[in-house]
């Protein structure tokens, strides 16, 4: 994992959107967005409800197309390779781009089986290795101490916030390169939120992180870059401190100061 560690100076583009336009059927949810996500940086996506934040990050791992009739124009480059090219292996793509969904969606299996779901798919069956993955991932997602004595219990019996942390652990267990997080803290109390924020701080040493959040303070605290979305369009995208102290755009300022949305 440390091989991917980059020092702070080299800023490398990991994911690049070029003129991305995204339709659900005929409905245009994302309109011509171009932006970059950098390696070892946290990029926050903010914007009012329904503006297309989830759609935007789901376009990166191509997960919407499983259940929806979608149409995509433009490019999503992962390490300079368009993930919408015909020859892209979706299994490989999703392994490299992990995701934590807006609503916790643990499998109705045990806590343990949830975490090892991904590794098992790739043929890791060694009990000792799986045990290590479970402890590592659950510790990272700040859940280990709460569940270490009941790993065989059903994940459904966990509280909503615990389920969300389990889903984070599950995503970490496959060791992705990019981590997409769709409001990972919306169901969490302040303590758990703080721990997830610490986790993100820690993870960004290795991963490229995109996080959707409704919480302005959170975006300001944890992200390096922030994009503000409105009605499917990227209104502003910049270094977080600039966005929050000196936004170019009047609407951005109104939104982050809470005057609308």
């Amino acid at each position: 994992m440390n091989t991917r560690h980059k020092t702070k100076e080299q800023i490398k583009t990991k994911v690049k959107l070029e003129g991305l336009t995204f339709y659900y059927g005929k409905y245009k949810a994302i309109d011509n967005i171009s932006m970059e996500f950098f390696e070892c940086k946290v990029t926050a996506i903010i914007g009012p409800s329904g503006c297309g934040k989830s759609t935007l990050i789901k376009a990166i791992n191509r997960i919407s197309e499983i259940t929806n009739d979608v149409k995509v124009e433009g490019k999503v480059l992962l390490d300079n390779k368009n993930v919408y090219d015909r020859d892209v292996d979706l299994v490989d793509l999703r392994r490299r781009v992990g995701m934590v969904f807006q609503r916790p969606n643990p499998f109705p299996k045990s806590i343990y089986d949830n975490v090892v779901f991904g590794p098992r798919l790739f043929g890791v069956n060694n009990k000792k290795q799986l045990d290590e993955i479970v402890e590592y991932s659950l510790t990272k997602s700040a859940l280990w101490n709460e569940v270490k004595d009941r790993l065989n219990h059903s994940a459904i019996s966990l509280s909503g916030g615990q389920q969300q942390r389990l889903c984070i652990a599950r995503a970490l267990a496959v060791d992705p390169e990019v981590l997409l997080m769709d409001e990972p803290c919306s169901a969490l109390d302040p303590t758990a939120t703080a721990r997830i924020e610490e986790l993100i701080e820690d993870l960004k040493k290795y991963y490229t992180i995109a996080i959707v959040t409704h919480n302005m303070q959170q975006a300001a605290r944890i992200s390096d870059y922030t994009g503000f979305l409105l009605n499917g369009q990227l209104m502003e995208y910049n270094i977080t401190t600039d966005i929050f102290t000196n936004p170019d755009n009047k609407v951005t300022e109104d939104y982050i100061t809470g005057r609308f949305g």
Partner: peptide, 22 residues
């Protein structure tokens, strides 16, 4: 639930693995 399929696909499961395991 669609959310469970999504979860499995997002972890890099193939279609058959999703059917089989979820």
């Amino acid at each position: 639930p669609v959310s469970l399929r999504e979860a499995a696909f997002a972890l890099g499961a193939t279609k058959w693995q999703v059917v089989r395991n979820v």
